[in-house]
């Protein structure tokens, strides 16, 4: 009778998973970075009610939050090439779409999805900062952009950080969907290993532990970062002064 839990095999899966862990981390890091930029742009369009863009941004946020991530991944993977092919034919471009690796569509889909959530986080954080901060910046002659960059956004970051941490953790776990379009990341590797050996239980326990470990590290990092970013709010700095 087969053993319920094959410990040596269980342990042997970790090096295999560690090998593809960078793929998972890369998807999360790239998507988070691009989504921050997109989210900030979308948030500013809505806060400053830029005609046209503000409405477009609202529709984007609603759509991206109102449709499953998996659907967005499929749309990105199967839809963008079709769109590009049409544009290619029309404008005579010479890019070879078959050369574009699948992970690019994953970057796009995750940025699209996470950007929408982040835009709301960032928008709320900016609106939470007292209007007087921007007024003070303007009153000494700073441009609105400088005031945003140097005064409002650093404070908004402190407000948004806990929520940003949640988003990163959710994102790391959601990268497990990337295998749906054959990008081999943690979950993909786990399924390959499982299918090869038919020991799914060990493999999925192992992959769960790896995700958990990554998320614990992120939680810790966010806590430390939060302490740093919130320094100006008091206590921590008093002790050093």
């Amino acid at each position: 009778m087969a053993t319920l839990f094959d410990v040596p095999f269980f342990l042997s899966t970790f090096p295999e998973l560690a090998r593809v862990l960078p793929v998972t981390l890369k998807i999360a890091a790239v998507a988070m970075l691009l989504a921050m930029i997109a989210g900030l742009a979308v948030a500013l369009c809505r806060i400053y009610r830029i005609p046209g863009l503000a409405q477009a941004a609202a529709v984007y946020v609603s759509f991206a939050r109102g449709t499953p991530l998996l659907v967005q991944i499929y749309l990105s993977y199967y839809g963008i090439p079709v769109l590009l092919e049409a544009l290619k034919a029309r404008y005579g471009w010479t890019i070879d779409l078959s050369q574009v690796p699948a992970i690019v569509y994953i970057y796009f889909a995750f940025t699209f999805n996470v950007g929408a959530y982040l835009s709301e986080t960032i928008r709320a954080a900016i609106l939470a900062i007292d209007k007087g901060q921007m007024e003070a910046a303007l009153s000494v002659g700073m441009s609105a952009w400088d005031g945003m960059k140097r005064i409002v956004l650093p404070q908004a970051l402190a407000v948004a950080l806990p929520s940003l941490g949640n988003t990163v953790i959710a994102l790391v776990k959601d990268t497990s969907l990337a295998f749906m379009i054959s990008v081999v990341e943690l979950m993909g590797e786990a399924r390959i290993q499982g299918a090869r050996t038919l020991r799914f239980f060990e493999v999925y326990i192992a992959v769960a532990l790896v995700y958990w470990a990554v998320c614990i590290i992120i939680e810790r990092a966010v806590t430390l970062l939060e302490r740093r970013v919130r320094q100006f709010e008091g206590a921590a700095a008093v002790r050093r002064a």
């Binding site: 007292d130 007087g132 007024e135 003070a136 910046a137 009153s139 005064i151 650093p154 404070q155 402190a158």
Partner: peptide, 9 residues
């Protein structure tokens, strides 16, 4: 300003 509006950061 009445409420000082010092840059908090």
């Amino acid at each position: 300003f009445q409420n000082y509006n010092l840059f908090r950061n």
